[in-house]
């Protein structure tokens, strides 16, 4: 449709492109629209940059302390860019080390492999370790993954989404006795799993899915459905019929309305939406 060489702001080629071309930064709704009283976000405090810092940048960060009994707040931190790493995760670590040691977040590999530091950065879900500070808005906005129960600050309770993942029985089901050696696949059969095996369970997709926001208790969400498809597509699995029957439900599977926020947000460039168990009948 358009030139391939130049990256056009309106056409997104890959999920790592910044969402800078959106007309609005957020939907025109009141900040606490439809939010339960104890989830409403209040104003927090401002943490000034240390004296002498020449290059600073502000981050607005969601805070919640379960021990205080207070509502969540939005704190503003001024980060000394000359003193921290280049990634958003670097800024968070700098804040924790230098400003407020109580700032709580998950992190491990710091190279986009473990999926621990998934959070909402400037309105979309991404990994803090693979988003550059320079790519964030002025006053970068950092929230935990959307629509999750919050344990503390940027740490969401992932119990339910992991349970939905477990409900997919994400392991090989086979009635044939295990062979002497490996269960072999042709390269073509193996390639059927491309785009599905890469999932690191960061739950950026499920947390960014409006259908999961409204019906997350019954709709499985993109991460679990991608996993379901990964096993349906596996030629070595012998439970395809059972797996399809267990998906066949107006809410579990068919609450997917192909909104495709999942594909837009996947930090691994996966396509959570593309699964075809629907076409079976």
């Amino acid at each position: 449709m358009m030139g391939k060489e130049k990256r056009l702001p309106l056409i997104i080629d890959s999920s790592d492109q910044l969402p800078s071309a959106t007309i609005l930064k957020r939907f025109p709704l009141p900040r606490n629209f439809g939010v339960a009283p104890d989830s409403r976000i209040e104003e927090g405090q401002v943490w000034k940059a240390p004296a002498g810092a020449s290059r600073t940048k502000a981050f607005t960060i969601y805070r919640y302390d379960p021990d205080s009994g207070d509502n969540p707040t939005l704190d503003i931190f001024e980060v000394d860019l000359d003193d921290c790493g280049p990634m958003v995760l670097g800024a968070l670590i700098w804040i924790k080390n230098k400003v407020d040691p109580t700032l709580t977040f998950r992190r491990s590999c710091r190279e986009g492999v473990c999926g621990s530091c998934a959070m909402n950065i400037d309105g979309t879900n991404w990994l803090a370790c693979t988003r550059e500070i320079a790519e964030t808005d002025e006053a970068g906005r950092i929230y935990p993954l959307s629509n999750m129960r919050i344990v503390k600050d940027l740490v969401p309770d992932l119990t339910h989404v992991f349970a939905q993942y477990a409900a997919m029985e994400p392991w090989l089901h086979s009635k044939t006795p295990a062979p002497e050696n490996e269960r072999l696949q042709s390269p073509e059969e193996r390639s059927e799993l491309d785009g599905y095996y890469e999932c690191i369970l960061c739950f950026c997709c499920t947390s960014g899915c409006p259908s999961h926001w409204w019906n997350g208790d019954r709709f499985l969400g993109p991460a679990a459905l991608l996993q379901a498809y990964r096993w349906l597509a596996d030629t070595r699995d012998e439970a395809t019929g059972q797996r399809l029957d267990d998906l066949e439900d107006p809410f579990r599977l068919y609450r997917c309305h192909t909104i495709l926020n999942c594909t837009r947000t996947c930090p691994k460039g996966g396509t959570p939406a593309r699964r075809s168990p629907r076409s079976r009948k």
Binding site: E248, D249, P250, R280
Partner: peptide, 20 residues
């Protein structure tokens, strides 16, 4: 349990009809 909550009442084994 969390899994209990996720599995809930199980699959109703329908939905494709309305989708079609």
């Amino acid at each position: 349990t969390p899994l209990n909550h996720a599995l809930a009442l199980g699959s109703s084994r329908k939905g494709a009809g309305e989708w079609w």
